[in-house]
Design a protein around this nucleic acid. Sequence first.
DNA 1: AATGAATGAGGGTTCATTCAT
DNA 2: AATGAATGAACCCTCATTCAT
Lengths: 218, 218, 218, 218
Amino acid sequence: MKENLPQDLHYSEKQVAILLATEQLIAEKGYSASSVRDIAQAAGVNVAMISYYFGSKEKLLEALFVYRIDSSRVVLQALLENTVLNPFEKLEILVTSYVDKLINNFAFYQIMNREPAIKEIKNISKIVNATKQRNQGMIRQLIDEGQSKNFFKNTVDVSLLMHTMMGTLMSVCNNADYLKIIYQSEHLSEEEFGNMMRERLKVHLFQMMKAALTQPIT
Amino acid sequence: MKENLPQDLHYSEKQVAILLATEQLIAEKGYSASSVRDIAQAAGVNVAMISYYFGSKEKLLEALFVYRIDSSRVVLQALLENTVLNPFEKLEILVTSYVDKLINNFAFYQIMNREPAIKEIKNISKIVNATKQRNQGMIRQLIDEGQSKNFFKNTVDVSLLMHTMMGTLMSVCNNADYLKIIYQSEHLSEEEFGNMMRERLKVHLFQMMKAALTQPIT
Amino acid sequence: MKENLPQDLHYSEKQVAILLATEQLIAEKGYSASSVRDIAQAAGVNVAMISYYFGSKEKLLEALFVYRIDSSRVVLQALLENTVLNPFEKLEILVTSYVDKLINNFAFYQIMNREPAIKEIKNISKIVNATKQRNQGMIRQLIDEGQSKNFFKNTVDVSLLMHTMMGTLMSVCNNADYLKIIYQSEHLSEEEFGNMMRERLKVHLFQMMKAALTQPIT
Amino acid sequence: MKENLPQDLHYSEKQVAILLATEQLIAEKGYSASSVRDIAQAAGVNVAMISYYFGSKEKLLEALFVYRIDSSRVVLQALLENTVLNPFEKLEILVTSYVDKLINNFAFYQIMNREPAIKEIKNISKIVNATKQRNQGMIRQLIDEGQSKNFFKNTVDVSLLMHTMMGTLMSVCNNADYLKIIYQSEHLSEEEFGNMMRERLKVHLFQMMKAALTQPIT
DNA sequence: AATGAATGAGGGTTCATTCAT
DNA sequence: AATGAATGAACCCTCATTCAT
């Protein structure tokens, strides 16, 4: 299960540098608009090293996905199995966890959520779909538990709920520049603003989901 | 497909064909991965026509944005000025309107929401930002009205609410393939499935937003 | 002998406009770097008119040569046949005549003297060679007369002498910008400077040629 | 051909091959009419190598100018500082030197003297102007010396004199084909004819300049 | 008689990749 | 193990020209 480790120990320092440069550049410009030359330069390595290490540009992206995909299973799996916390507490932790994960790895999530290339690379599609399925399943399980314990009403479409959470996060992060103006936060540093948004998002999403899960049937 | 075109801005039939092919191809593959040759072929025209009509690949994308944006202003503006409907009814219409608009023009929204190229094309950025600002403003106005009339609580972050709506829509549409499996709807035609999702989304989003806007303060 | 007339009466106003724009543009940028679109635009006509009127870009250049080549035969021919003037006077008139002709038609002479394209267009080569031969012949005849009348020594290479005259003129005109600085004449208008150079050139060339033709044998 | 190369400026064999092919082709057809594909083929290299080595077509021309210019400074500078030779002898050497230099590098001089493109490439303009200025200055210095030593009259326009020399050379070389016929030298090889012209030009130009510089004031 | 629309060919350049070392 | 050199393919765009009207 090497591919699930956040950091593959087989990668040398240079290889990691390439992967990080890849992530950043593709997140910024897209896969097709990022040339291997640009990536190599950003990583401070020779152009030929990319083919040499990863085989091809496509396989480089593949390696990035293997490298990045899911550092979270452990956390969430533990959350599900926890018997002390009540469903509301679990929901809050879930939301917090997703907000942090997405903001901390925004570059990668951008690639995963909007890069058309990944649909045409089978190995990546496989990984991505498996991850989505797993995440979807865990959320469903958590909500099922809340519903069976009568904490949550069962009028919400759980499948859509996950998209509400992820979609909100993506949309907000994608429009961070714009929101910075809206919130009149131009004076904040990137980090300060990021932290502010992080908190706002946690509150907002927990509030939204809680409301949706507990609202009286109309 | 033509019924989705807001209006013809003095474009000839061939030019429209190019714009539609552009939209479809870029939505599918991204701007950088869509060559003008591919676009020309998809539109059934000679490659040189694209430069001839639009000047360059970049200006072609620009023309697409001018062509697509601003189809909705009228509807929503009328909604805001309506004095008969109550805020809940207005909210429902708003949600319905956005769901339909996004699903009907999904290809374009995909481009607008995920194409890195558009941030580097100033004319497009300008158009897009103006549109976002307008949309944001209208939603805020609607919610303000609901709050001032005591229909809505005022604990919701309106700026984030818009992203919840748009983000949910984008996320769902982006993962339509996956949801088709989840909903065990493989037997439905594209159109049937689209209509089903359309209704589910309307219900889900209205429910979510209503819950968020009316939930008791915790 | 229509083609020898400085202005072909068969050319309409528009055709002449095209020819003049052609001359100016090709003199400035060269044949290959001047697109028919640019020429058409400079002439204020439709692009297709050039093919329509002249057949092709190549034939347009051909037409320009026919249009321009030699308005001087008459003058010089008369000069040669003149029996009143002595060879020195004739030489001075010859020089004056060439200086004026070249400066007045510099754009065309630039094309004729440096455009590689004309060597590959047979019709033009033919015209140009015939003209050169004629000019060479006339100069030789004039000098022969001066030598046989013992005004000139006969130690000068007449074939090279013509190149000295034409080469000096071309070189000076080609480097007019540079000479304007050398002569500290930046304050002069183009016309004033042109006239100054015209006079300087007449004096210089007559002086040079006279000296060469009369110098004692060393 | 290689013996004409002033010196290798850290260029590889392949790069030199490209430069020489560039020179020859542009001298023959002009800059705009010489495609990089043609140049690459003439140099026996892949098309992409030109961008790879020189960056662009424009920079290739730039490189050619850097490569070619400044081969003569040393010789002439030494001539000026020579205290043994009298001004006439110096003049003869100067003429000889320019004749040889231009004939040996005729392709390059053609480009420099007639290529419209070079005026629009600032780096080249700079180099060319500096060279012209230097040459002009050296000739002036030589003539000044002759005048101050009373070898030369001072009635000649030195600025124009340089153009007489260079212009004659250019004009003769440009019309070599034509002169071959005039001189009835079709039976000579290119080299034989070249050598003949070289000698004729040396004699002619020295004779012209000497006559001009020594003629009694009229 | 005159022209906007349209096109195949070729322009310079960049691409991901491979090769020789 | 690592890389500078090299390449064929494809990129976007402009070209001179033709065609239908």
